[in-house]
């Protein structure tokens, strides 16, 4: 019909996403957190390492909206700085996990030889690796060397991102492979094959775009999981060094002062929780929006 407006798939997805009220609310909340973390440095220009022993563990006040830590350093400034690292680790680790997972899944999904079985065996093997102990082991063994090559902060950033991403690609690989197995037999792919499209073109132009929906959902949830894992490492005292106040590191410092400075622990904890919760809800909304089987 000529009068009917045609919606692009993305617009259709956005229409479905908007129906998930919690997801929309989470999107606003996450946008606010990201904005605060990115631009807070200019809105709240206080040094993160200005030590003031007269204001140790001060409760939230006008001078220090989030209070101060055990050395009298302003907690709001440290939260802004730490949030950048936590979010950057989450995003970067998600990218690593998605790239590795998509590559492995795509190869396993396209190959019709033993490679497919071998890669899936590898995936299952990685799935049964205990990730946190392994993460701790790798950091324990390689910390010194990376520090020497890339410098303290960058070295640890690269290592944490690589290791968290490198231990989280398996669900994505399984997802992509399952999608590929069904998509590669579809008529439109066969048509492309009949027209002489190379394998690479079949994958990149025809199969992968159609498999993208679940991958985006998995990627969203991976950001949340990576933020939790980075905070866990920092909380155990084995992540970033003490002078880099990531949210997990702030919690680690706060846990000894629970009885007289509860705000010190509650604020970074709540920040991690709200960020992760909003990302998870957005993932849920995206699942509703991008799964064409769930047309409402």
């Amino acid at each position: 019909m000529a009068s009917q407006r045609v919606f692009s798939p993305w617009r259709e997805a956005w229409r479905r996403f908007r129906r998930h009220r919690l997801a929309v609310f989470s999107l606003v909340l996450l946008a606010a957190i990201v904005f605060a973390v990115l631009f807070g440095k200019w809105l709240w220009p206080v040094a993160i390492d200005e030590i003031d022993f007269t204001a140790r563990l001060a409760r939230p006040s006008l001078a220090h909206p989030f209070g101060t830590d055990d050395l009298g350093q302003d907690l709001l400034a440290r939260m802004i700085y730490g949030g950048r690292i936590s979010l950057a680790v989450g995003l970067a680790a998600m990218l690593v996990a998605l790239s590795v997972g998509t590559l492995v899944g795509a190869i396993a999904g396209m190959s019709r030889s033993w490679i497919s079985g071998g890669l899936m065996w590898l995936t299952d093997l990685f799935l049964s690796l205990p990730s946190l102990p392994l993460l701790l082991l790798i950091i324990y063994l390689f910390r010194e060397q990376l520090k020497a090559v890339f410098g303290l902060e960058l070295g640890i950033f690269i290592m944490i991102v690589a290791v968290i991403g490198g231990l989280r690609w398996m669900p994505v690989a399984r997802l992509v492979r399952a999608q590929f197995l069904s998509l590669r037999e579809k008529e439109f792919v066969e048509a492309a094959r009949a027209l002489g499209a190379s394998r690479f073109r079949q994958v990149t132009r025809h199969i992968l775009p159609n498999a993208l929906g679940p991958v985006i959902v998995a990627g969203t949830i991976d950001v949340a999981a990576a933020i939790i894992q980075e905070s866990t490492l920092s909380f155990l005292g084995l992540g970033f060094p003490p002078d880099v106040p990531t949210w997990g590191r702030l919690l680690y410092d706060a846990k000894d002062y629970l009885d007289f400075a509860p705000h010190f622990a509650l604020i970074p904890g709540a920040a991690i929780f709200l960020t992760v919760l909003s990302i998870n809800f957005i993932g849920d909304g995206l699942r509703d929006a991008l799964d064409p089987r769930r047309v409402q």
Partner: peptide
């Protein structure tokens, strides 16, 4: 359920202690 698995264990632990 969403709240539950978005709460990291180290934070729930500290809140319970508190």
């Amino acid at each position: 359920a969403f709240v539950g698995f978005s709460l990291p264990t180290f934070f729930t632990g500290l809140v319970l202690i508190l």
